[in-house]
């Protein structure tokens, strides 16, 4: 299964970057979401994946024993998922605001005055 996940992560990263390089702002947003998913999966995979052994201590015991899924990447990813929701909503609103201001969806129209140095 690791192989499929490896490919999947590569695809997430590739499509994320590809969408970020498009001129459309909405596509940029989609790219960011894909990239975020790829990163989450990457952390998840690298922590080691285990089937059917969640990191929850059974009723009768006081500590986890035997093989169990690594809780550390899970805690990290949980944080990352919620944060990326904040990021996405902020990005959407920012995008709307820019769209209202410059009446364009083209990133090439977004050049800052830096060029006039």
């Amino acid at each position: 299964m690791e192989l499929l996940l490896l490919i999947l992560i590569g695809v997430f990263y590739a499509t994320g970057i590809f969408m970020m390089l498009r001129r459309s702002m909405v596509k940029l947003l989609i790219g960011i979401i894909l990239l975020g998913n790829g990163a989450n999966l990457l952390i998840f995979l690298l922590g080691g994946i285990t089937r059917g052994k969640p990191p929850i201590i059974p009723e009768a015991e006081k500590a986890l024993t035997g093989a169990y899924a690594d809780p550390v990447p899970q805690a990290l990813i949980l944080t990352a998922i919620v944060i990326s929701f904040g990021l996405q909503s902020f990005a959407i609103v920012l995008l709307k605001r820019v769209h209202v201001l410059i009446q364009s969806d083209d990133l090439n129209d977004l050049n800052t005055p830096d060029t006039s140095i």
Partner: peptide
């Protein structure tokens, strides 16, 4: 906090 944030974002948008 999560309720507040999510609802603020969604209701504002």
């Amino acid at each position: 906090v999560v309720i507040g944030i999510t609802l603020t974002i969604l209701f504002t948008i």
